[in-house]
């Protein structure tokens, strides 16, 4: 199981896009992936984003296709949402809300972790 941690907001750097590139490539190689959104990474999941206004590719749109790529373990840090006054209902894809301790357990179950922050 490869764990991919997303911890930065979508457009301030290239991490979100290149994390997604990695996840899609890994799914092509039939890898088990767990995707984690923590800290500012939760901003990647806000629905109805319009990055076209800043001439940025709308890569979060692709999150909706992750199920098609058999990426089904998607975890969102509940505390990161709360701290940013975001609600689970505002997210663009189906995901599992996890507490800090659940997050630690899930991360420890991964064989490999890559962080995109």
């Amino acid at each position: 199981m490869i764990g991919v941690i997303n911890s930065s907001s979508p457009y301030g750097n290239q991490s979100g896009q290149e994390s997604l590139d990695f996840v899609l490539a890994a799914s092509n190689f039939a890898q088990d992936i767990s995707l984690f959104f923590v800290d500012d990474g939760v901003f990647q999941l806000i629905e109805k984003q319009t990055p076209e206004q800043i001439e940025h590719k709308n890569f979060p749109k692709t999150f909706a296709a992750l199920g098609f790529y058999d990426v089904e373990n998607i975890y969102v840090c509940a505390e990161s949402l709360t701290l940013r006054n975001l609600s689970y209902e505002a997210l663009c894809i189906e995901s599992t809300l996890v507490s800090d301790s659940e997050l630690r357990t899930l991360l420890s179950e991964c064989d490999t972790l890559l962080r995109f922050g």
């Binding site: 490869i2 590139d21 990695f22 490539a25 890994a26 092509n28 190689f29 890898q31 490999t112 890559l114």
Partner: peptide
Amino acid sequence: LGELITQINQADRT
């Protein structure tokens, strides 16, 4: 990127 997947799978630790 496929090479990264191969590399991860071959090693004990990444």
